[in-house]
């Protein structure tokens, strides 16, 4: 089991640093490209949300803890922004036609779709989201 950590200021240009950190952590452990893409997407969506809404203009950091095990990749993402439980967000209607199509909630919906387990805690003044993705299982059904 290997563990990688990153702390970055919650500023949008740092999304690329986060993407590179995730890609290299997974690549070093031979994680399949398709699984790695899903994990990058989930981490990117969560971190984008924190940067855009979590700190509401004030400065803050995002802590990412990536653990690569034999069966799971686990990501823990923590911030000190406003308390926000992404798991309570309703899913968007992805069958709506163009006129009725809304974009809100799509990012969190992606996270729920591509990851196998999600857990949210508000702990010590921090939002902590833990996400797990199986790495030795057949591809998830999307």
């Amino acid at each position: 089991m290997k563990r990688y950590t990153l702390q970055v200021p919650a500023d949008l240009p740092n999304l690329e640093i986060i993407a590179d950190f995730i890609a290299s952590s997974l690549d070093q452990n031979g994680i399949d490209d398709r699984v790695a893409y899903d994990i990058r997407l989930a981490v990117d969506e969560i971190c984008s949300n924190i940067m855009l809404y979590g700190y509401r203009g004030s400065k803050g950091a995002i802590d990412i803890d990536c653990t690569v095990g034999d069966q799971y990749v686990q990501l823990e993402i923590a911030d000190e922004g406003v308390p926000f439980n992404p798991l309570t967000l309703p899913d968007p209607d992805i069958d709506a036609d163009l006129d009725h199509r809304k974009i809100g909630g799509l990012g969190i919906f992606f996270v729920k779709t591509v990851m196998d387990e999600l857990e949210y805690k508000f702990r010590g003044g921090r939002n902590v989201l833990t996400m797990k993705k199986r790495v030795n299982a057949p591809p998830s059904g999307h």
């Binding site: 993407a19 893409y37 990058r40 997407l41 990117d44 969506e45 984008s48 974009i103 799509l106 990012g107 992606f110």
Partner: peptide, 9 residues
């Protein structure tokens, strides 16, 4: 090579 919900938006 990559798009998130922000790109879709």
């Amino acid at each position: 090579e990559y798009i998130s919900s922000s790109g879709l938006r």
